[in-house]
């Protein structure tokens, strides 16, 4: 599997993602600066990493979504290349229109950095295929603007087409208000594009991808991708 990581001014999880991808695939990902306008042929996975691009000015991810490289990311998305946006990467994907909805400031207005339980709502995708349906996993979040909002109309589409990837839940898998860390509508933590080739998620799988970091549960996302592209 060949992968690329897009680096924006203010990205700060790009190297964590690169370490994880190198470890899983045995190959270093291509690091692509936001000002480039070409992503080479043969790239199977493009990752938009976490961070605080452009200081979250205007709206989180809004300025980065106007970068030159985003038109190329959109071209690749049209061709079915797998695209993963984590945290700020998710915000950039919604602002660029590749995913529906938007990430608003957390309901309690605090930056939240902690492990959360997530329920895998859909495992029929290149990203989540190694998980069981409704499997409960634990992955860290670290964000100020993770409060997912989407119009009722689009929420219904997400539900009808099984495009909700992950929901915040409690340790026994119940999705309720107490297990919602940031006010996200229906506890949504991650969503797919309509063809399920684009995934945006607030939790950081790359932060739990090495035993030295306390666990390897996040690795499964990348191992699933590797399996699909080898």
């Amino acid at each position: 599997m060949k992968s690329a990581v897009i680096v924006f001014p203010g990205s700060n999880c790009d190297r964590d993602i690169a370490v994880t991808l190198s470890k899983v695939t045995g190959k270093k990902p291509l690091m692509i600066w936001h000002n480039e306008n070409v992503i080479p042929k043969g790239i199977d996975l493009i990752v938009l990493p976490g961070g605080f691009t452009y200081g979250d000015y205007l709206r989180s991810g809004a300025i980065a979504s106007t970068s030159k490289i985003i038109s190329e990311v959109k071209n690749k998305a049209n061709k079915g290349v797998a695209i993963l946006g984590v945290c700020n990467g998710f915000q950039i994907l919604t602002e660029s229109g590749l995913l529906s909805g938007i990430l608003l400031p957390n309901k309690n207005l605090k930056f939240i950095c902690k492990d959360v339980h997530l329920r895998v709502e859909e495992n029929n995708s290149v990203f989540t295929k190694l998980f069981k349906l409704n499997e409960i996993i634990t992955i860290p979040i670290a964000h100020h603007d993770g409060n997912y909002f989407v119009t009722e109309e689009e929420l219904n589409i997400l539900k009808d087409k099984n495009l909700i990837a992950l929901r915040y839940c409690n340790p026994s898998g119940e999705v309720n208000i107490d297990s919602n860390p940031n006010g996200s509508i229906e506890n949504i933590a991650g969503v797919f594009s309509s063809n399920k080739r684009v995934l945006g998620m607030m939790p950081h799988p790359e932060r739990l991808a090495d035993i030295k970091l306390g666990g390897i549960e996040g690795l499964k996302f990348f191992e699933g991708l590797l399996e699909g592209f080898s």
Partner: peptide, 9 residues
């Protein structure tokens, strides 16, 4: 429409 406003919200 291009940047300043996100019409979803």
């Amino acid at each position: 429409r291009k940047l300043l406003v996100n019409t979803v919200i």
